[in-house]
Nucleic acid binder design. Structure first.
Lengths: 358, 358
DNA sequence: AGCAAGTATGCAAGCGCGTGCAAAGTGACC
DNA sequence: GGTCACTTTGCACGCGCTTGCATACTTGCT
């Protein structure tokens, strides 16, 4: 009898789909495996891993220890089916060519991991817009989307937030909509640039703008021009650029040259480096003696001795932390979720007082 | 009677969990929604999206059109529960500081998207090893893991492949194990460097090595030394580096200086750039007149005029394509899955014949 | 000891989709 | 018209986990 019971018990305890699961060498463990071992129901396994579930501390300890010993971890994918939270955040970005974005991605993904999320990476092909990609994201049950330096239409943003998911813009804002966003103070950065140029004796200030259609660039331009007006200096020249690339910066410097600027503010560091290149190699002028240069982003290369670029430093770690923090702001919160971080000016060799040449 | 049937039909057609799904503004569509609209079963919806399922072309067309019109797409997460394929590939990498890795990640993720996969990004913290992270990946039902420039123990690799998932190494190999991997011909690259140095009249060749424990570096070193021996030249000096960073390259150049090399091969471009920096700014020597420099990776910055670095070019697009192709190699295939791509030498200004100074 | 209030557990029904199997439909051919 | 072979469809159950509800167990108090 006892034997019979024993046999019955172990024999039909579970009806595994034999056709599908032949491998048990490194089979992936299910809650059932732990439950069977401990003689409890799978519900308890689930509850043990859910901090707010009703379960006795003793039981939780027992389960956690068994899970640890066996190497069991709840399957996030399966659990996301019922909870509708996947602990996966989609990170959308255009390109990693600009080291600034690479930095953002790396820190963002690291910070997300720290908060228990994983990042699902979406690279936009050139010319591809975020809106068209969002529907694909839905397939992945992502909890949130963090859009790095790319734009999104307010309609779509609305749809998404309505559907209970979060959309967070990084390094962009949506002017007319309260979409959560994290930026650095672009205007203020541009103002710092003007002030520093003026303080170091520059008089013919030029601006190499980035892409017209981005809020980031618009703010930098706005700040630059506004501050110029405030201090009573005229803009010597300005040039727009399609891609914000090294080559764009190079070309921008060449196009600005006829206006004979003695200082150029580039909308980002990569362009500034290209600009320096053009100034020194092609125009045969010296930085900073003939032309002072300020960039924006403080990418690692800006600190390299060859360039030693004066630039505006956004507090990347804090910005990333803010973005991740926004993930846990409750849905109906009235709190303002458009966060702006202050920037600082990092003075290096690409700007120097004019005393020597003056 | 007819009315009753009608009512009954539409009333209990489904019992939605009212508590959980109140929002229907932008509600995410399920197969059921499409099925109900067309008056078919959800099975058919599933089959319509599965190329090898048994379904009439007419029905498939009808379903696809309805799905398109409604904006329905199958939920990858839910489907992965039954199919055990998530169309998600984990990409593991250490850091994006080195632009080469950023390039790899960008192209890899793009190529994966093209093949219908998405990349789940895992950043390793410094000192963190892949082995310890793999268990976490299992939670995400990833189809495969692509490990970029990081090492993995053969035991773990074994466990994984046994469990039916793929592990693919990018830019690393596992010497004793047939783990699928994609590399460029590191040895050959190093040999090209030696030959080019010799052909341009260099006699005191030095090597700034990367991290000792990586196959990539070992192969580059091996190739360099072997070719040196073959052409009957002695190694002027060699120095190891912990991180392969810009600063490492900078320091390496300083450490190599006492040996008075007239050519230095750096294990990668970032180090080479650091080396050039040190040679020009700190040692006050000229590149290439006093010291010729060759790097490895052909990162975008190597082509910038300031550096104009001669380097070994790995065919990144082809490598990435190979890696993605490896994903679909059937499990028991006998085909060799350790792919090595040829490299080419890109000659720029950091190496020039010695005629002028000679 | 007995009972109420509270806590711990198990049960079963989902989450959205895939799929083996049986039922229904289609068409060809005699 | 009937039969057979074949295709198309629906049913129902399972993937691994969560969770409302009912039951079983504690505990404290009279």
């Amino acid at each position: 009898m006892v034997i019979a019971i024993g046999i019955t018990h172990s024999a039909n305890h579970r009806k595994p789909n034999m056709a599908n699961a032949p491998r048990d060498a490194t089979r992936i463990l299910r809650a059932r495996d732990v439950a069977d071992l401990l003689g409890v129901s799978t519900s308890m396994i689930s509850r043990a891993f859910n901090p707010q579930a009703s379960i006795s501390p003793a039981m939780r300890k027992r389960i956690m220890e068994a899970a640890e010993a066996l190497g069991y971890r709840p399957n996030v994918i399966a659990s996301s089916l019922s909870t509708r939270r996947s602990k996966i955040v989609a990170v959308i970005l255009g390109t990693l060519e600009n080291p600034f974005y690479a930095q953002v991605l790396e820190r963002l993904s690291r910070e997300l991991q720290g908060a228990g999320y994983q990042s699902l990476l979406f690279n936009l092909a050139p010319g591809q817009d975020v809106d068209s990609q969002l529907p694909y994201l839905l397939q992945y049950n992502v909890d949130a989307v963090i859009i790095v330096s790319a734009s999104i239409s307010s309609g779509i943003a609305n749809d998404w937030t309505n559907s209970g998911r979060k959309v967070i813009l990084f390094n962009r804002t949506l002017p007319n909509m309260p979409v959560p966003s994290v930026c650095c103070d672009n205007q203020q950065g541009a103002r710092l640039a003007v002030d520093h140029f003026v303080a170091t004796g520059r008089e013919r200030l030029a601006f190499a703008a980035g892409r017209r259609d981005t809020s980031t660039n618009a703010e930098r331009e706005l700040g630059f021009l506004a501050r110029l007006a405030e201090v009573g200096t005229k803009l010597a020249a300005k040039v727009d650029n399609p891609h914000c690339s090294f080559r764009d910066g190079y070309n921008a410097a060449l196009k600005l040259a006829p206006a004979q600027p003695d200082a150029i503010f580039f909308a980002n560091d990569v362009m500034a480096l290209g600009g320096v290149e053009a100034i020194e190699k092609e125009l045969k002028l010296r930085v900073p003696e003939d032309i002072a240069v300020i960039g924006f982003d403080d990418i690692p290369m800006a600190a390299w001795p060859t360039y030693s670029l004066t630039t505006i430093h956004p507090p990347l770690d804090e910005m990333v932390a803010s973005a991740v923090k926004l993930l846990s702001v409750p849905e109906g919160s009235t709190e303002d979720t458009r966060i702006i971080h202050p920037v600082t000016l990092v003075v290096r060799d690409s700007t120097q007082p004019r005393e020597i040449t003056g």
